[in-house]
Design a protein around this nucleic acid. Sequence first.
DNA 1: TATTGATCATAT
DNA 2: ATATGATCAATA
Length: 226
Amino acid sequence: MPVFVAPPASEAELVSRAEQLAGEPLGVLAARVGWEAPADLRRHKGFTGQLMERLLGATGGSRAVADFPELGVELKTLPVDARGVPSESTFVTSIPLGEIGDVEFEQSRVVRKLSRVLWVPVEGTRSLPVAERRVGTPLIWSPSAEELSVLRSDWESLCLLIAQGQVESVTGHLGRYLQVRPKARDGSARRVAYDEDGARLLANPRGFYLRARFTQQILARHFRLG
DNA sequence: TATTGATCATAT
DNA sequence: ATATGATCAATA
């Protein structure tokens, strides 16, 4: 079994590879690359995503670029319940708190990440042993004009608040599709930001996330599930 | 019980 | 340090 997987030469090849994985349990797939599935994900939260990257030949690594730079495609695994409904939000990108407002939506990290996404649903029920969780049918996706306009308005209003120094008042309650939540090693992590008077302050690092209701809509529109 | 806020591991 | 991969777990 190949431990090294070459990057796919085209988007079609990438999708084809992902389709070949559908139905397989994570334990079987992990063994293909010489890994063992952990008992649970408490200390291995990135396991599924990293396994899929490895299996599909992603090369982006932890750099701030797409997982498949040559194809401009981002890979996102999506934990789903027994009915195929996403059970968690989806992390999109970290937020540069100190230099927000320097960029238009079209050039933003959010657009760069979401312009083309390969969604890979994976069973995520906590009581299911990780090794037994099966991979679902993948979906290659780009946001529709309507979806993009909602994402833009969420992004613009959230960025405006942060740029105005209201970072501490931006909670996970805000945003229809996109939300801002902590994204840090722990509660003591700090990042440079600015208050409403432009004075430097240190804030907990934040990231943009897609609400589960939005990713549910994405999946439902393409596979008419029950 | 759905959601927000907190947290864990690894790469560069 | 800060990006990546996310899910956990306390709260409302």
